[in-house]
Simulated scan of single mutants.
Amino acid sequence: MGGVSVWHLLILLVFVVNVVAFWRLLPQAGISKYLSILAFFPPVAVIFLWVIAFRTEPLKQG
């Protein structure tokens, strides 16, 4: 009864890739990389993108 389907694994993979992307992007925006774990929740990921998009200073390189 039930079990993990391929679709569940695919959705989980998308969320994990999202967190890894924010793990690398947030420090360049001057935000702690540990907050990227919150990007597992889609509304928080949208907020992070909004904050990064409307920053007045450029992203740090490297």
Results as ranks from 00 to 15, higher is better:
V20P: 00
L10T: 13
E57I: 04
L35W: 15
L26N: 08
V4H: 05
L25Y: 10
K33S: 14
I37K: 00
F15V: 12
R55E: 06
V44W: 00
L25N: 06
V6I: 10
V51Q: 04
F22K: 02
V4F: 12
A53W: 13
R24A: 08
F54R: 13
G30L: 05
L35A: 12
R24N: 11
K33G: 13
G3D: 10
F40R: 04
L49V: 08
I52L: 15
G2T: 09
M1T: 07
I31P: 01
S36W: 04
V6Y: 11
L26K: 07
F15Y: 14
Q61M: 10
P42H: 07
W23V: 04
S36V: 09
V46R: 04
P43G: 04
A53H: 13
M1C: 09
V16C: 12
V6P: 02
G2Y: 03
F22G: 01
P27G: 06
A21S: 02
G30S: 00
P42K: 09
A53N: 12
V16F: 15
V20R: 11
G3F: 12
H8D: 11
F41Q: 11
V6T: 06
M1E: 07
L59E: 05
A29I: 07
L12N: 14
L13R: 00
M1H: 09
V17C: 03
R24Y: 04
K33T: 09
W23F: 13
R55Q: 15
A45V: 12
H8F: 06
T56Q: 15
W7F: 08
F15P: 00
F48L: 10
P42L: 11
V20M: 02
V14A: 13
G62H: 03
L38A: 11
W7Q: 05
V16T: 14
V20K: 08
Q28T: 13
P42S: 10
L25W: 08
Q28Y: 02
I52E: 06
R55W: 07
A53Y: 15
A21K: 05
L13T: 07
F48C: 10
W7P: 00
N18P: 02
F54Y: 11
I11C: 06
L26T: 05
L10I: 14
V46M: 07
L49C: 10
L25A: 15
L59S: 01
V17E: 01
F22C: 02
P43A: 11
F15E: 10
Q61R: 14
Q28K: 07
R55L: 14
A39K: 03
V4M: 13
G2F: 01
W50P: 05
I47V: 15
L9M: 13
R24D: 03
R55F: 09
V16R: 03
I37N: 03
